[in-house]
Design a protein around this nucleic acid. Sequence first.
RNA 1: GGUGGGGUGGCCGAGUGGCUUAGGCAAGGGCCUGCAAAGCCCUGUACGCGGGUUCGAUUCCCGCUCCCACCUCCA
Length: 474
Amino acid sequence: MSLQLYDTATRSVRDFVPREPGKAGIYLCGVTVQSPPHIGHLRSGVNYDVLRRWLEYRGLAVRFIRNITDIDDKVLKRALDEGVPYWSIAYRNERLLDDAYDAVGVELPTYEPRATGHIPEMHELIQRLIDRGHAYVTDAGEVYFDVSSWPEYGALSGQKPDEMRRQSSEPPAPDKRNPLDFALWKGVKPTEPQDAYWPSPWGRGRPGWHIECSAMTWRYLGEEFDIHGGGRDIQFPHHENEVAQSKAAGFGFARFWVHNGPLNMAGEKMSKSIGNVVGLPELAAHGIRPAELRYYLAAPHYRSVIDFSYEALEESAAAYRRVEGFVQRAVEQVGVVDPGPVCADFVTAMDDDLNTPRAFAALHEVVRDGNAALASGDRTAVAGALAGVRGMLGLLGLDPLSTLWREAASDDLRSTVDKLVAHALERREQARAGRDWSTADAVRDQLKQAGVLIEDTPHGPRWTLADDTTDGSS
RNA sequence: GGUGGGGUGGCCGAGUGGCUUAGGCAAGGGCCUGCAAAGCCCUGUACGCGGGUUCGAUUCCCGCUCCCACCUCCA
């Protein structure tokens, strides 16, 4: 059994065979950093992070490129609105995005190139398209891709150019030969920030929206590579235009197109332009931890629609805490056990187009067995379950014991709190020994007021910190 | 108008022509506990609507309906 992946270009699930044995090159269309990131962006980040981890588990050395598009119409408009350089906007949002990825445990890409760092590659690519008769230069110094020169145009997104609706809010560019032609290079406009331009063979200007991805895939992954990923919402026009210009330039380009589903908000897409966005700060205000968000984003299949709601998010958080609770209790009983082999159901599920819902089901079954082993005191079984659970959680980026999810100060504080709690528990145990339940319960209530939850186990009492969402510690 | 994806039990969310059926959350019952918490066991309520194929369809086919996305900037 090997990995099978759904490929948008062929609309089918196919065996994933790397171009070069033992290696995989992935390009993920990152974000246009026009505004702070929302959890729709994080879904994309988490989905491809899981794909990457799975490819690595399958023994592939993954080169993972995730770009930053740091110049486009929206960024420039915002710069004008705020009266600051466009690149300060892009940089500010890029940092927020990286922090957010970091918070939800998305591993660093192999490299994260920026569009504006690749102007020479764009020029080379554009010149190549002009030379091959797939692009033309207008009197205004703009360069357009000639869609009519590329018969495959529309194949990726299933669109037929003749049947596409011609509705554009923008006034049509007068020099375009065909409304579908798209800009490779845009000329200087007096209404735009004047620090947003570079010299080019066709006059001063700036890149069109799609050319940066073609340039950066070329630079970092070569003319042909394994997987191109991105959100389904940019399949057209962005990916269609990308594949057109790259293939017209003579490149093999992406062998697999992977598209993740959207994250909706009350039935509508979460989108910067609609303004219904939720980011990490809002979730933190609801007491949702980043790991719980990651669980929520990773548990449904990556191609399905997630209709965001706090109710569903709370359910995921509860499910994650169940798994986390097992790991904590297991470690208390048998000590830290390294991540071990994962169960066959998990592997089968992940190989089947990353069927994370089934993978999570497999995880929960092992957790249940592990809990039963804890109850029966079967330490060998506990250790085995812990190893398997950690193995699976690691591949999903959710291992509570990974350094990722440990709050910086918590370890130091923990031993301090442990000593204080031990005193209180000693008093409580004395009271319990004398069957003085009211005193025993009073101690437990006091600790609860302080946010420390006490549970009695066959091995004696244990304590945990109350979740932030529970309001009992006020 | 064109293209694609969907409507599964109280909620989230897989899956399959019948055979044991996901898994989680919530609910009820039980075990455990001084009580609790956690955990374990058990329980119920499903496959948008109407036809068809079939011994048998939630799963295949047809029609209908509703929802979403894309065709315009958006992961």
